[in-house]
Design a protein around this nucleic acid. Structure first.
Lengths: 190, 190
DNA sequence: TTGACAACTTACTAACTAGTAAGTAAAATC
DNA sequence: GATTTTACTTACTAGTTAGTAAGTTGTCAA
């Protein structure tokens, strides 16, 4: 019998990578089990259904994001630094590795994923937008960001362009994603 | 024997709707055949492989876009009108119907779709961007658009935000997509 | 040392997947 | 009127899917 080290965490890591790489309908328990050198029932032991596995991935991501956001080292940053930190997540951990964000991956196939997962993704998306909106308002008040209209609307624009930009990077290359980020900044910074 | 009217076209229409609704890995030949009241072999007769069916959908979309673009009624429009026409495609035919664009749908699961389809999607994306870039340059020269940086970069930003915005609409509602479009305009129009 | 429990394997199922080969019926072509 | 072609159906395959039930093994606590 092969034992997986930190089974639950290792499985979540792999599932997250697969979700960002192939999408929910593009990966199977066999992908995970073969990668770990165990039988697929071993995965079902930890996560009975694919829906539960998907939800666990998103839930962990949500928790991680809240930890980052409430981290004092992040909290003390200026609005620009916070935004750069946010962008760097997308650039370093997604675009440069050919991945897309969980939200984009699963909203693209929203109508063919389980309902609990839809709920989880919706919650994550709302949390990301809420934070981004706050930072934008903060930055505009501080006179370092400049934009017309509501922070909420600027937030959906920026997040949508990051989400779409990561997907574009797959077909057209990472450079194009960096162009998106640069253009966001050009349109925002004073 | 049940005969499908305009078989090829009807199948393409259904496949296109399914692609925009469920993604490439989220639909099967059975979805199409049962909807049309025929056997799945009937679909294979017209499109031997799923890859060929996917490619045919994207190819038709590319042709259709080129026709629109070269249509004299579109060609004679002002840059703003052209852009509004472009946005209206996304709003009327996608967001308001819960669909996403083909490009976004398939780039999200890019690493789990056939290679020929990847090529086709890449070509479509380039064509969309090329046109958008031209319109942006045209509008800036005419003094009706205002933005910093290169038209190419503003084009990738706008297209990415439309692509991501459609996906967001699934989880957060259509209104949010309209917000994205309004914000694009706020950031662009003089 | 025993027993309980966690973490697996073995062995399986039922449903679905894309895809194929051979047959049929109607329509178009000669 | 005969023949070919088009558009299907029938019947099938081999592979994959998520998921389950029952058995095994190693670890840890009493």
């Amino acid at each position: 019998m092969v034992k997986i080290e930190n089974s639950k965490r290792t499985i979540l890591n792999l599932a997250e990578a697969l979700l960002q790489d192939k999408g929910f309908n593009g990966f199977s328990y066999a992908h995970i089990s073969s990668e770990l050198g165990v039988k697929n029932a071993a995965i079902h032991y930890h996560y009975p259904t694919k829906e539960s596995l998907g939800c666990a991935v998103v839930k962990r991501y949500r928790d991680r994001f809240q930890l980052w956001v409430n981290n004092s080292r992040v909290k003390d940053l200026s609005p620009q630094e916070k935004l750069d930190w946010f962008f760097s997540i997308y650039t370093d951990m997604r675009a440069d590795k050919g991945k897309v964000c969980l939200v984009g991956s699963m909203e693209a196939e929203f109508n063919s994923i389980p309902q609990d997962l839809q709920v989880e993704i919706t919650a994550l998306h709302k949390e990301l937008l809420a934070w981004l909106q706050t930072i934008l308002a903060e930055g505009r008040d501080a006179g370092v960001f400049k934009f017309n209209g509501e922070p909420a609307n600027k937030a959906v624009l920026i997040h949508s362009s990051l989400q779409g930009g990561l997907q574009m990077a797959r077909a057209l290359g990472t450079k194009r994603f960096h162009d998106v980020v640069e253009q966001i900044k050009l349109d925002l910074l004073v």
